[in-house]
Design a protein around this nucleic acid. Structure first.
Lengths: 115, 115
DNA sequence: GCAACACTTAACATCTTGGTTAATAGTTCT
DNA sequence: AGAACTATTAACCAAGATGTTAAGTGTTGC
């Protein structure tokens, strides 16, 4: 596993913003659309939308095709995978109950006493 | 589905930091540990670690038990789920190929001409 | 040509984030 | 009691994120 860490960081950072998530959801249901149309449900200015799209694009969560004066935006199907994989791998090891925690806690106490 | 949006935001924001992800991975493999032990592999100061842990805790990605002077930290198995669910739902609709995009593009052009 | 359109870039204000050191709170041990 | 230990909070600073308005780039259509 090489350094796709920065990629994963970009994806999570992109998803950490509610506006960007809403854009992705919209793309997920509507398929794709031009920027102005995507921007409609939001109160923020066009430049703000433009930058959100740039963030999503850099994280490879969307792609765009220029067609004349409009930019057609679509979601990239594979974009979420690095993040999903990371989460799955991380979650795989997470099965520790509080019982196990208590057990480990007792061991720590013993170690402390023997020091 | 109510407003767990802020929860999802918190989780993604927490995961957007490489240090916090490394902490989670460490917890995922080692099980759990006290703060000082968790902090060892990092060069940053103890207060910085402390705040990272607080962010993870607020996102419910970790839990802690105070045992004497040490705080035992563990990963919360269910913590990732809201984010994972969101991603799964979002990815479900993402199967648009560039062919479909081209098709839609042609339709847009037609609409433009008829206007 | 030129006006309207779609969108981005530039410049700026403001808030948040992530790091630091110094100080504080509570626990353990002698 | 007092020293050492574990960890947090406070105060501060630099860098980055998010929003704004104004200006710029390229396209369409009369």
């Amino acid at each position: 596993m090489v350094n796709n860490q920065s990629r994963i960081t970009a994806v999570f950072a992109a998803l950490a913003d509610p506006t960007r998530r809403r854009i992705l959801v919209r793309l997920s249901s509507h398929g794709e659309g031009q920027v102005t149309e995507l921007a409609k449900p939001f109160r923020i200015s066009a430049p703000a939308i433009s930058r959100h799209l740039r963030v999503l694009e850099k994280a490879r969560l969307i792609g765009r095709k220029r067609q004349g004066r409009m930019h057609m935006i679509r979601a990239r199907a594979d974009g979420l995978k690095p993040a999903q994989n990371w989460m799955a791998q991380c979650a795989a090891g997470w099965d520790f109950s509080f019982d196990k925690l208590d057990e480990l806690l007792r061991n720590e106490q013993k170690k402390g006493k023997n020091r």
